[in-house]
Simulated scan of single mutants.
Amino acid sequence: MEFKTIHRNTTPIMIVEQFLKSLESGQLVQGQQLPPERELARMFGVGRSSVREAIGILVVMGYLEVLQGKGTFIRRSSAGTNYKAIPLENLISLLPLFDLLEAREILELKAVQLAAERANDQDLAKMRRTIRKLEESGGDTEKFYTADGEFHAAIADATDNAMICHILKSLVRQIHRFNVKFMFTSEEAMQQTITTAKAITSFIAQGEGDRAQNWMYRHLNEVDGSLKNMVAERKKRGERLSLSLWAEEIETPSQRP
């Protein structure tokens, strides 16, 4: 396996592009295990954080899967599925829901760290406006998740990374649509979310990426925690449901074979 060393303005998207070229040429094949992050970083001539971010992007796109304790592998796509031909929004709805939640967490934690390094006054003002919308949601679940989605979009914008913005916004939209339709969010949970959103914004404004990252982890578990627990239980039973399949199961159980 060979990769060209990246010399100019290294970004994760350039790593993604090289990976996709290697996949198209047949140099990489389904089921193949990738070298460890440290080795990939050496091969590309970049830092491990850039490799880690690129892997997160490729996981979301459906090309890679990370198996705990085993490593990172080229995903074996289902028969007849051409992931490259599927628009991102549609692709996300086809992927296993637990995988999407994990991918979102990877991207969100990186995004908030980048936002702490790059956010300007306009970005911070946008975050604060969305927090006011959260406060004004008045217990309305749809308004709450719409405002929460705008908060995450503001953080994505503050990364100044077009690929992270595109993928993260698509992920958040799909997951929030599911939450609005099927999940109950208590008033207490909404208040906790507002508190953590304020803390995240404050630490981003202070440039404290690590502390903002810790609060983002807490924020994600408050907003998506119940959903993640539910999906984890179904995953233990060997069920790998996508957003679209699960929505169909809940909406029309009598129509399923």
Rank of each mutant, 00 (worst) to 15 (best):
E2R: 09
F3L: 10
T5N: 06
I6C: 05
T11S: 11
T11V: 08
P12T: 12
P12K: 13
M14R: 13
I15S: 03
I15R: 02
E17D: 15
Q18A: 06
F19V: 00
K21Y: 09
G26I: 04
Q27A: 04
V29L: 05
Q30S: 15
L34H: 13
L34K: 10
P36D: 12
R38K: 15
E39F: 14
A41C: 07
V51F: 11
E53P: 03
A54N: 10
A54G: 06
I55R: 10
G56A: 07
G56Y: 10
V59W: 04
V59K: 12
G62T: 05
Y63C: 06
L67P: 00
G71A: 02
F73Q: 04
R76V: 12
T81K: 04
A85Q: 14
A85G: 10
P87H: 03
P87C: 01
L94I: 09
L94T: 15
L95V: 14
P96V: 00
P96I: 02
P96K: 04
L97F: 12
F98G: 14
E105F: 11
E108D: 11
E108C: 01
V112M: 01
V112R: 00
Q113M: 01
L114H: 06
L114W: 05
L114M: 11
L114I: 09
A115W: 00
E117Y: 09
E117I: 04
A119W: 15
D121L: 10
Q122T: 02
D123H: 09
D123F: 13
A125C: 05
R128G: 03
I131L: 04
I131Y: 06
R132W: 15
E142T: 11
K143V: 03
F144T: 05
Y145V: 08
T146Q: 08
D148E: 13
F151P: 01
F151Y: 09
H152Q: 07
H152C: 01
H152K: 02
A154G: 03
A158C: 12
T159W: 10
D160I: 04
M163T: 08
H166D: 01
H166W: 04
I167N: 00
L168I: 01
L168G: 06
L171S: 01
L171A: 07
V172I: 10
R173Y: 07
H176Y: 07
R177F: 07
V180C: 02
V180M: 01
T185R: 11
S186L: 01
E188D: 14
E188I: 09
I194Q: 06
K198G: 04
A199L: 05
Q206S: 00
A212T: 05
Q213C: 11
W215G: 02
H219D: 05
E222F: 05
E222C: 12
D224F: 08
D224N: 08
K228E: 10
A232S: 07
R234S: 11
K236D: 13
K236Y: 13
G238H: 04
G238D: 11
E239R: 12
E239F: 14
L241N: 10
L241A: 14
L241E: 09
E249F: 14
E251C: 14
E251D: 14
P253N: 12
S254G: 10
